[in-house]
Amino acid sequence: MKNKFRALYPGIHYVLLGLLLALVGGLPGILFSKDLSKILHNEYVGWYLVYWFIITAIYVLIVIYFRRKRIEKPVKEMCEAAKKVANGDFSVYLNPPKDSYDYIQDMYNDFNHMVEELGSTKTLKNDFLGNVSHEFKAPLAVIKSYSNALKTGSLTQEEQQKSLDIISESADNLSTLVTDILRLNNLSNQSILAEIKKVNVSRQIADAALLLEPYWDEKGIEVEADLDDSCEVFSDEEMLSIVWNNLINNAIKYGKENGKIWILSKTVDDGIIISISDNGIGMKEEVVNHIFDQFYQGDISHRQKGNGLGLSMVRKIIDKVHGTISVTSTYKKGSTFSIWLPKNIGDYNR
Rank of each mutant, 00 (worst) to 15 (best):
Q160T: 15
Y9H: 06
N42L: 00
L193T: 10
K73Y: 01
L150D: 13
R303E: 11
S265W: 04
Y331K: 09
M283F: 15
N87C: 01
S301Y: 10
K256F: 00
A141T: 14
N307F: 03
I71M: 03
L155S: 03
I325Q: 08
G334H: 09
S175T: 13
E169F: 08
A171C: 04
E232Y: 05
I196W: 06
W244V: 01
Q294V: 10
G255Q: 05
N148G: 10
V115S: 08
S338C: 09
G306T: 14
Y331F: 13
D269T: 05
L182Y: 14
L40A: 12
E158S: 08
P10I: 01
A194M: 05
G220D: 04
Q304C: 01
E135L: 10
K144V: 07
S133E: 11
E285Y: 02
L20E: 07
I300T: 12
C79L: 08
F5M: 07
L264F: 15
L164D: 08
G46E: 11
D180A: 06
E237L: 09
V142T: 15
I205Y: 05
Q161N: 13
V268C: 12
G11F: 13
N173A: 02
V327Y: 04
F53V: 05
K34F: 02
G310R: 00
V233M: 03
L212F: 06
I261L: 01
L61G: 14
P10W: 01
T56V: 03
V288N: 07
G271R: 12
D270E: 15
E218M: 08
L140P: 12
G11T: 14
T267L: 04
V92M: 07
N249A: 09
S241Y: 13
E232G: 02
L240E: 14
V321C: 03
T179A: 06
L31S: 07
D180H: 14
G26W: 12
N279Q: 01
G119R: 07
D207W: 03
K151V: 07
D35V: 03
P139W: 03
N186C: 04
D89W: 04
G271P: 15
E135F: 07
T152M: 09
G25V: 09
N112R: 07
N246R: 00
Y59K: 00
V142Y: 03
E159K: 12
H290V: 00
K197T: 12
V24R: 06
L341V: 01
